[in-house]
Amino acid sequence: MSARTFLAREIFDNPVLRKELFMRLRLRQSTQVRSGILLAILLLMGTFYYFVVKFLLGENNAEIGATTWKAIIGLQFTLLCLITPAVTANAITQEKEQQTWEMLLYTSLTAGEIILGKLAARIALLCLLLVLFFPISLFAWLHSLILAPNAAGAVSVGQFAATYLVMLLSILFFATSGLFLSFYLKRTLYAIMGAYTFVIGFLMIGTALVTFILAGLFTNERVFDNCPLMWINPVMMMSEVLNPDGLPNAKMFLVFGMLSYLLLSLLMLWRMIYGFRRFAMEA
């Protein structure tokens, strides 16, 4: 099977993906309510855009643009960390709870189609958040770039791209871990709790806490740089990509963190797809 055929079947022509997107984007409320929801989103985003643009246009300092851009990225990243577990951890448990999982397993769909379809649908929704913020992010970045492309603290093209790459990889990793928990657990509540515990409890707080303890034990000031556990801390990764000069070896740690996210995501996907029928059938 060629890569194109594989992608067409597993992703683009995937009934699970289409159903998931369709059902999640469908608003069953009346036209008035739907219009109200859209209007509220537009108003919220419009206000945010208005104030940011107004603020940036009134400033001629290149650093202000860069700082604003970093603030926007930080806001997006915080939202992604908070939303992703809730969005993904119900993907399969919901099917189990509404007793449609077995029927889905029984169809001619492959394990890849089901798992990747569900993952892609949720990642697509999470990417909407990036899309919503992208114009203002681009504006703030261009503001700093146009005013002083070579100034200290200016955001380079590479840094801009790397930041989005970190966000996309974080989405992939958080979403896959949520899906993974949803695959192995029976209840949505437990899967969501597990996903938040993993992303916020372990990756964000746990890794830092362990590092602090290690720092205390070994009285090593550089423990943050040298403890690999910290390299997969999403806050640390974002801080490394936003302030590449802040830490020695930041680039190396960042690459390690990004590769870890990618490999762990692939490992979880492989585990789910490989053990799909066997596990799903015996569960």
């Binding site: 159903k19 059902m23 509404q98 007793q99 449609t100 029927m103």
Partner: peptide
């Protein structure tokens, strides 16, 4: 064709 012993249907569809 397999029909399980419970009603598994998607809502919102």
């Amino acid at each position: 064709g397999y029909m399980p012993d419970f009603l598994g249907v998607y809502d919102d569809i």
